[in-house]
């Protein structure tokens, strides 16, 4: 991995194993519950959940209105509310405004809607720089915005999480809601990418 460790991985792994064995022995944690938690975050939740919300907003203008007015309520309508995503604000990208989400204090992120955040979102570099030089941060992701586009940066916190509603790409007119959802990437919903027009039958979700 890219992150520097000041302790060897094997030492950390041993420490974790020691703590786990003690917690299990004392009945403080159940090993099966740990496996369930890991399985849930590795395989159940992820950006495909947020992509459903975005695609719905693209095809249903009334839903989009409700989503932008009351993100929490509109997401609850779809039954997609979950842990760490209880209070949501959804911000829409337009031809003149681009939104970017960060958590400068830690790594607050809508887990139930995007899954666990990527390493870059949790990195010291992103957390520090997104609020002071968002355009150069976006350029590192390959997204260069003209000066005519205003960049709005939203700093998340423990109680309130954000989701970017990206612009619907051109060339996606005839697509079903499901096919539209498949175009939507994690980075587009954080604001470090735009949604690309469909180019192949099976777009890859980052």
């Amino acid at each position: 991995m890219t992150t520097h460790h000041h302790r060897p991985e094997s030492e950390i792994a041993l420490r974790v194993k020691a703590i786990e064995s003690l917690l299990v022995e004392k009945g403080i944690v159940d090993p099966a519950a740990l496996d369930t938690i890991i399985e849930h975050y590795e395989h159940q939740v992820g950006p495909h959940v947020g992509a459903q919300i975005v695609a719905k907003a693209w095809v249903d203008p009334d839903f989009k209105r409700r989503l932008l007015a009351d993100g929490t309520g509109a997401i609850a309508e779809l039954g997609l509310t979950g842990f760490s995503s209880e209070h949501m604000i959804v911000v829409a990208n337009t031809a003149t405004v681009h939104n970017l989400i960060v958590c400068t204090l830690c790594s607050c992120y809508p887990w139930a809607i995007l899954g666990l955040p990527p390493t870059w979102y949790k990195s010291l570099a992103y957390r520090s720089r997104a609020v002071i030089e968002p355009r150069s941060v976006l350029a590192e992701f390959g997204l260069v915005l003209p000066d005519t586009v205003e960049v709005c940066v939203w700093d998340s916190n423990a109680d309130l999480r954000y989701l970017v509603l990206p612009e619907r790409p051109d060339g996606a007119e005839g697509l079903s809601e499901e096919a539209l959802a498949a175009l939507v990437t994690r980075n587009a919903m954080i604001g470090t990418a735009k949604v690309e027009p469909p180019t192949s039958p099976t777009p890859i979700a980052a």
Binding site: I12, L23, V29, I38
Partner: peptide
């Protein structure tokens, strides 16, 4: 950290796994 300078480039990793090792997954779960 907001606004601090000198922390380098954003560590972007393509196709990143949810956890990078078994211990990371265990720390998260515990």
């Amino acid at each position: 950290l907001g606004g601090m300078q000198g922390l380098g480039a954003i560590p972007i990793e393509e196709n990143e796994p949810v956890f990078h090792s078994a211990w990371e997954a265990k720390v998260f779960a515990m």
